[in-house]
């Protein structure tokens, strides 16, 4: 609607360049937690004992030998947690990467090219979007007896990229009709160059937030699949740990050291990524930024003044 009202091409409109998110408390907390967990997943497995080694001591609470206790079959929980962290992060990373590629391809390229390609890509995206993913994943998993971590990640990615593609398509369409992009077109810049130089940089915050979402979704989705006994076979993830804990009646036996750590890791990692996404959101949507407390602190108004101002307006 607004686009139709502006008829003239205004060459002076400044380009909006992505800025780094301001280092707020939220963002810092998110980055630190996510960083520590990633570090644990990277070097943890090098430091711990064999996670699958069975010991006849059975279910034991935390001790000096086993910092997080042992499972029913005497396996070291800390060792399992280290490998599980690595496994879950691999699933998250693979799905994040695949989502980036798939949604970028179907969302950005289609929308930028326009015409029948856009129609076809958007139709495909929307069809994938309305067909519920998890039941399909469950059914596929049921047919395949041996499931590697990569297979699970692949199936999760295939069923989850469409939402991001749709969001990206919307933004690309609106960017495509921005004045400075039209101006570069008039100036005869090459189409792929316009895509890379003018459009892609503006999509980076949105891409980042979509990838973060995909990673959260993948890790939680994998955990859900594992809980149903349909996760990766023969590998450790937070989800499979919880599955074994559930099967070993850890909850009933009060073996908190078995089921709390993987659940907590999941929750912490998910929360950390959500915090990061909040900060990215504030870049994507400047209207939100003006409402944060940070912005208000920048005003030279006392609380009393703000309170009085609120009385007379919304």
């Amino acid at each position: 609607m607004a686009a139709a009202d502006t008829v003239t091409v205004n060459l002076a409109v400044p380009r909006r360049r992505p800025t780094l998110p301001p280092m707020t408390g939220k963002l810092a907390t998110g980055l630190i937690i996510a960083g520590l967990i990633t570090l644990f997943g990277l070097i943890g497995p090098l430091l711990v004992q064999d996670p699958a080694k069975i010991d006849d001591i059975g279910l034991t609470p935390p001790s000096a030998d086993h910092l997080l206790g042992t499972t029913q079959t005497g396996q070291d929980v800390l060792a399992q947690l280290a490998y599980a962290t690595r496994g879950s992060l691999i699933v998250g990373a693979v799905v994040g990467l695949l989502t980036l590629i798939l949604s970028g391809f179907f969302g950005i390229v289609g929308a930028y090219a326009g015409g029948w390609l856009d129609e076809a890509f958007s139709l495909f995206t929307n069809v994938v979007l309305v067909i519920p993913g998890l039941p399909v994943v469950i059914v596929i998993s049921a047919y395949v007896a041996e499931r590697s971590l990569l297979l699970v990640a692949l199936v999760l990615a295939i069923t989850s990229w469409a939402g991001s593609a749709r969001v990206l398509r919307g933004s690309t369409l609106s960017l495509r009709s921005r004045d400075y992009v039209l101006a570069s077109r008039v100036a005869g810049e090459r189409r792929w160059r316009i895509l890379l130089v003018e459009i892609l940089p503006n999509l980076i915050p949105l891409l980042a937030s979509q990838v973060v979402f995909a990673v959260i979704f993948a890790i939680l989705g994998e955990a859900g699949l594992s809980y149903l006994g349909l996760g990766a076979t023969e590998s450790f993830t937070w989800g499979t740990m919880l599955y074994y804990a559930q099967n070993g009646l850890a909850l009933r036996l009060g073996a908190w050291w078995w089921f709390v750590p993987p659940g907590l890791m999941l929750a912490l990692f998910g929360a950390a990524l959500s915090l990061i996404n909040f900060s990215i959101d504030e870049i994507i949507n400047p209207k939100l930024r003006n409402q944060t407390r940070g912005a208000r602190r920048g005003w030279r108004m006392s609380r009393e003044q703000i309170r009085r101002a609120k009385e007379s307006t919304l």
Binding site: M301, A309, T313
Partner: peptide
């Protein structure tokens, strides 16, 4: 008509 919003005063 007092329609100003903060930070206007």
């Amino acid at each position: 008509v007092r329609l100003l919003k903060p930070p206007a005063m």
